[in-house]
Amino acid sequence: MSNAMTMLGRNFKHTVRNPIAVFNSILFPVVLLLMFVYIFGGAFKVPGKYVDYITPGMIVMVISYGLSATALAVNSDMTKGIINRFKVMDISRSAVLSAHVVSSMLRNAIGIAALIGVAFLMGFRPAASASDWLAVIGLILLISFATSWLTVALGLVAKSPESAGMITVPLIMLPFLSSAIVPAETMGTGVRQFAEYQPFTPINEAVRGLLAGEPNTTSTVTAIAWCVGIALIGYVWSLSTFKKRA
């Protein structure tokens, strides 16, 4: 635990000193929210106010936009010899990976808090009860935990920082091909089916239902199942790759 806290402090300092990571994970989702609500929002037909519809989707996008920074940080440790230095020190190897996951989750939490604050200023008015908010927080933490472990694995398998940045692009783009911005049923044939069966759509709908005070049990159970599966794959893949390369 002591090693993990030390590594967490190190990773967080690196994030603060990286303006690109701060912009991508905290500021850029806010820019997207402003752009979609005030520029494109009137063109979309959604139930209720558009800001109420898109905010849950943008919460998930905050998580996806922070993934590239995690992959780059992990890959940088592997390719620049930092791990080799840690190997000759009395440091738990598991602390290196877990610290990257926790720092990614903290960065996501800050970005989501900023996004929700701006959304409230724009007129976002969720009908969620206290228990619904707790469920939203728990689901967001689970999503962040799962995607962070998968991103750590992707950062470990990448051969260079450049490839680490590119390898996360599909994860960053997936929310755009989900129900985050518009309902999946309004999409064209092919895209609609892809949006309905990919993991981010049930995640969006689960968060959206909870914030609206109308929990969608099917979407919530499906979202949890996706998150648990992604977390297990990312965790096992990360440990296996780390043991081979470290």
Rank of each mutant, 00 (worst) to 15 (best):
A113F: 12
A223P: 04
I39Q: 09
F145A: 04
I20E: 14
G165L: 01
I233R: 08
S163V: 11
M78T: 13
A195N: 10
A21F: 04
G213A: 01
P170C: 03
N216D: 10
L97Y: 05
L142I: 06
L171C: 10
A206F: 03
Y65C: 13
M187G: 03
I91R: 05
R192D: 05
K80E: 14
N3W: 05
L156A: 09
W149A: 07
H14R: 15
G229Y: 01
V46R: 06
Y50P: 00
Y50R: 02
K159V: 13
S179K: 06
G66E: 04
L177A: 11
C227I: 05
S104R: 03
F40L: 15
I140F: 07
I54D: 00
F28W: 11
A73L: 07
T151C: 05
A73C: 10
A195E: 07
F176S: 08
T147E: 10
S160M: 05
L154V: 02
V37I: 12
K45P: 11
I26E: 02
F36C: 06
A113Y: 05
F40G: 10
G57D: 04
V88N: 12
L210R: 00
S68Q: 13
D52S: 08
A71T: 03
T220D: 09
L67P: 11
S144E: 01
R85E: 15
M61D: 02
V62E: 00
I110Q: 01
